[in-house]
Design a binder for these strands. Structure first.
Lengths: 365, 365
DNA sequence: CACACTCTTGCAACCGCTTACATCCTGTTG
DNA sequence: CAACAGGATGTAAGCGGTTGCAAGAGTGTG
């Protein structure tokens, strides 16, 4: 094996120096199969043999080659989590939830960030799929067909998204919307705006329908605005659109967008909630200490991550998997929502100090 | 092969249905070696044979099993990037830079988030190292010894960190600090505070020494404060500490912390930069549109990520690797730094509306 | 004491691909 | 036209594990 030794010389592949089950087998005076079983099925090895093997293994610093293990077994003990925006605290919570659960189950989680693009999402899945046992897709921007195609060649679970009969975990968007619209209605709002996120967002589409339906039932006019980039920076134009639309309250696609809206409204001297109420989605880290603190529909992000992993784990184990798990959403009312401007009993009584939009310094953005 | 077909029945491992080089070989009437060569070394295959193989491969939807490929070759074409805080925009930029470069080179990047803990960092490396060709460690919290140990069993590159002769890419912290201290000195500041990050931060230690040295040279007193959690929320106590220390300017461990300080100072009615100047590090996304816009030492984050990948790629290829690459830092002056309070020509001339710290409402934190 | 049965262990055939070496074929060259 | 160089293929031995099957060692039963 001239090649082998040749490779070992280069420090580029230090791996080749590592002990294998054969080294251990020779040292311990057993067969490689026994060594393998000592790790893979300890119950099948007599206790004292096991001890001896483990001792030798420890002495040699043996660590199984996951690749070699994966080849015959077809299982890599690795799961992939694909998210559109790694910096969004909502996804971050999903990530930590997923990671936690994966580690508990003895799996390694690999992360892929796709930056909202369906192309790079598909590419990421394509690239990762052959090397993992399953894939969790969070807020997938892919169409149902494409998802379905991926689903029948790997163990797939959806998070924040439903598609056909593919296992999924979502929050109850419709109910969340109903709570929001009810809340705003009871505060006297009759014209509200929905600041939409990416067109490819399943949750966005669902909410759009739900808000129109809920609005219709309660006699609240709904303006569909957007789409906006669901990040803080997207709040600039979203806020401007809201002001332009003449609504008294807005539902932002997510908290990041809502926070951006809050900032822009402050810059333009529009008081929240005095002149405009703002509602977000997700209840991300920071939603409670931005100014004003954000009223938002809390998503159990951590739980979403955990559950998504549970779903693919079940699928990996060949167990029956529920097609769709829906987690409850609940409205968390903070300071960014208040009575509609015109519903106040008397203007003078207003506790809000109202600035006109003209105070905005020319250079500020 | 009763086992094989048995596995195929369970949808849990749909992989087994995939075409292999043997299927293609049979279809195309060549040997499996030729098929392998068609993909791995096309030049060694006669053009028309190659065509035929490629056609069959396409027809069968062949996709190489990366695991099987990795086993004999010892190369997985995968790189791991380990970062302490995935949500920090600075790391996010490093991530995108690294990802870009990795994809260009035909590698897959897997991400691990370690949440500032050296234990979970070590665990992540341990877990990932056997399945990747190399590892990039960003802002590692590990001690030099541990890093060295990892380095001699895998291709390692450090980002934002130096340790022994291990390949690394960093920004010129010392020079950056000198620019900051010079800038503050010229604005009249004579007492400045350094709001430290994690004790395990290499950059933090380096900066501490640099700021003391630079301060000594220029006659600026330096107060070392901290450590603080280098996230926005950590700015609360950092700001309080700065106020307590009676300094007129602070250098925060990173922009996140600086932004938190800005918020807290605003809450406590301390005007920036009128009463306190604030400098951050990294120049993250958002540093330019927070209020006031943050003066910060810009790190070429994207470039750091790219370079780190370049380093391990060179190491993987067995090429000589420079031990240490230092990228220039430059001070970006925005609105959060200004003349020191006491250096003003006359109080009345001050354009700052100064509020006393006592306006802080009791419950606010 | 033979026989069946269980528990350990070893043998050897994969997993899907890479690659050194052997073989075959074709075109040159003397 | 034989000898030979060189390119295109095939053969087969791994890579480091897993696992079905069989053999051997004990143990309990009739």
């Amino acid at each position: 094996m001239p090649d082998r030794s040749g490779r070992g010389d280069r420090r580029a592949v230090p791996t080749s120096a590592r002990a294998t089950i054969y080294d251990i087998a020779a040292e311990a005076g057993v067969s490689s199969a026994t060594v393998s079983r000592t790790f893979g099925a300890p119950a099948k090895v007599r206790p004292d043999t096991r001890r001896r093997v483990l001792d030798v293994a420890a002495r040699l610093g043996y660590r199984a080659n996951p690749l070699a293990r994966a080849l015959p077994s077809g299982r890599t003990s690795t799961l992939a989590l694909v998210v559109p925006a790694i910096t969004n605290p909502h996804f971050f919570d999903i990530i930590t939830g997923a990671e936690q659960r994966a580690v508990e189950a003895g799996f390694t989680l690999v992360l892929a960030n796709t930056g909202q693009s369906d192309l790079s999402e598909a590419a990421a899945i394509e690239r990762l799929e052959p090397m993992v046992d399953g894939v969790m897709l969070a807020s997938s921007r892919l169409d149902d067909d494409r998802i379905a195609r991926f689903a029948d060649r790997t163990n797939l679970a959806l998070c924040n998204r439903q598609a056909g009969r593919i296992p999924s975990v979502t929050t109850d968007q419709v109910n969340g919307i109903e709570q929001v619209v009810g809340h705003l209605h009871s505060l006297g709002h009759r014209r509200i705006g929905l600041l939409g996120g990416p067109e490819t967002s399943w949750a966005g589409r669902l909410r759009r329908r739900a808000v129109v339906a809920a609005g219709g039932r309660l006699g609240v006019t709904v303006q569909l605005l957007g789409p906006f980039n669901p990040i803080v920076a997207g709040g600039q134009s979203a806020a401007d659109a809201a002001i332009g639309a003449g609504v008294t309250a807005v539902l932002a696609h997510n908290d990041l967008l809502a926070i951006g809206v809050l900032r822009r409204l402050a810059d333009r001297g529009v008081h929240v909630p005095g002149e405009m109420s703002v509602v977000g989605f997700d209840d991300i880290f920071g939603a409670d200490f931005c100014v004003p603190a954000l009223t938002t529909v809390a998503a159990p992000s951590h739980e979403l991550g955990r559950t998504a992993v549970d779903l693919v784990l079940a699928s990996v184990a060949g167990q029956p998997v529920p097609a769709s798990t829906v987690l409850p959403a609940h409205l968390t009312v903070r300071e960014s929502t208040g009575p509609a401007p015109d519903s106040r009993t008397a203007p003078g009584q207003s506790r809000w100090r109202t600035q006109s939009a003209q105070t905005l310094p020319p250079g500020s953005r």
